[in-house]
Amino acid sequence: MKWYHYLDCYLAGVFLIHIVPHIMNGISLMNVLGIVVSLGGGCLLLWAGKFSFKDPLAVILLLAGAASVLIFNTMHHHHPHLHTTAPSTD
């Protein structure tokens, strides 16, 4: 495989791991759209990357893409539903 096929496998891992938070947040229109985009993009990248379980480097890069997102999210944990308000100046 060429180098860009391996890059596609890495990026497929990045896309596919984004399905998890959408599933965990429940069923809403935005979550369903997020799942469809992530799954569609990930599958297209797997196809473009000529992914095969027989190629150990492709599997490692797929897992590395998923792991890099998990590591990044762990290091930069945010609370999207917690809003900080400025103290009142009464």
Rank of each mutant, 00 (worst) to 15 (best):
L39D: 04
L33F: 13
A64M: 15
G65S: 08
S28V: 06
G40K: 02
G26F: 01
P56K: 02
N25Q: 14
W47C: 05
T74R: 08
L16V: 09
V32D: 04
S28G: 10
N31H: 12
L39P: 01
I17Q: 07
L16W: 00
A67P: 04
A48M: 14
V20M: 10
W47S: 11
P21E: 09
G41E: 04
F53L: 15
V20D: 04
F51K: 08
L57A: 14
L45S: 11
P56F: 00
V20R: 05
S68H: 06
V32P: 07
G41H: 02
F53R: 12
I19W: 00
S68E: 05
L63K: 02
A64D: 11
S38R: 03
A48P: 03
F72A: 11
W47Y: 09
N25Y: 05
S38K: 03
S52Q: 12
I60Q: 07
V36R: 01
S52W: 02
N25M: 10
I27W: 05
I71W: 02
T74D: 10
G34P: 11
I23C: 07
L61E: 06
L16Q: 07
A66H: 00
I35V: 15
L33K: 03
L57I: 15
L61S: 07
L29I: 14
C43R: 03
N73W: 00
N73E: 12
S38D: 13
L70I: 13
C43G: 09
G26L: 01
P21Q: 08
S52L: 01
L61P: 09
V59A: 06
V69L: 11
I35M: 13
I35Q: 06
L44K: 11
A58V: 08
I23A: 12
S52I: 07
I35A: 08
S68N: 03
L57H: 07
L61R: 07
S38G: 14
L57V: 15
